[in-house]
Design a protein around this nucleic acid. Sequence first.
DNA 1: CAATATATATATAGAAAGTATATATTAAAA
DNA 2: TTTTAATATATACTTTCTATATATATATTG
Lengths: 190, 190
Amino acid sequence: MIKYAILGLLHYKDMHGYRIKEHIEQNFGHMWSINYGQIYPNLKKLYEDGLISMTEMNQNGEKGPTRKLYSITGKGKKEFSRWLEESPEKPMLLRDPFLMRFVFYGFGDNNRFDEIIDNQVKRYENDLKRRIKNLKKWNKNSIYVRLIAELGINLNEMFITWLKHSKEEILKDISDNTGTEMKTGKRRIT
Amino acid sequence: MIKYAILGLLHYKDMHGYRIKEHIEQNFGHMWSINYGQIYPNLKKLYEDGLISMTEMNQNGEKGPTRKLYSITGKGKKEFSRWLEESPEKPMLLRDPFLMRFVFYGFGDNNRFDEIIDNQVKRYENDLKRRIKNLKKWNKNSIYVRLIAELGINLNEMFITWLKHSKEEILKDISDNTGTEMKTGKRRIT
DNA sequence: CAATATATATATAGAAAGTATATATTAAAA
DNA sequence: TTTTAATATATACTTTCTATATATATATTG
């Protein structure tokens, strides 16, 4: 996927590796993060496959060694379009690091349960605040990025509502089953 | 993370590799998928680190070669608890294969846009149907799994609403900018 | 002006996650 | 009795992600 994402950025404009990372941080910060260890090997592969071309540029005035400026080729545009219309794989809910923990909370310490859930609610709330604050920034970008930013806000609101409701449900379940041993959350994952 | 997820399953009950995969498919199907190439190397690592113990079992009556039955150790339970209370990493919105494509739709063919969006709405709707149908099944499981299943339904409903709204916004944007060249979606990713 | 710090830029090693396939054993079927 | 199917483990390979090493040109400082 990253291969195509990089191709997409080069579809927008010619860039070298360092600039790609900078661009992602400035234009997709908190929605997407990338590392040089993903960028450079992918650029190399895309170049070898003829999906991008390269020219070395010795810059004037600015710091640093020579840049390798990459451009998308005709073949690259074609391959990118193909990917764009391909039907995307379904994301798995439990690949979310919080949700993966959540399914196992039955094995945790009930005394610390409140604290852990409340901390996660706080994390979602901070995230929501940041996203609302940044909404103006996204408005200046592509309509597509702005719509994703709106989705992020909807998601945060939903997660907060869901998690607060879940906390109540779980506390009710814990108090219902106190002492019965056979029906605790711990025993019912199956 | 998978290391801990496997540890969590063994916290519930002793299992061998093959059974772990079966268990995940039956109890977390469509929320989580796993592969033998993730299970066996992780079991090996967990065993080497003393987080689980192993006994070889030659089964009677049932098919197949000897099983390696794994159990969580005291050390394993302690390490699992530590992980459970650790603060989880934030998931990145654009790691979703559909959303990653979505931000680049400005580079696609406007004539095919409707079709692509409508197909994705259909995917979300089918997913929603399946999740509602399976809700009874999750009710028999742990309360935590049931709550995640409810979250899945909320998510699907939200995505459908968001995507239908987004489609209208984008169509409006496309018709507003037709012919102006300078302000099309294509040019405004930045 | 020489030494050093800083920003720019690329490259690669290594861990973790995910896909695909090879190999072996036993019970049941043909 | 040979083949098929289910059970079970193992490993090779790819992709994703994290961390760090290396190099260069400009700016800064003594």
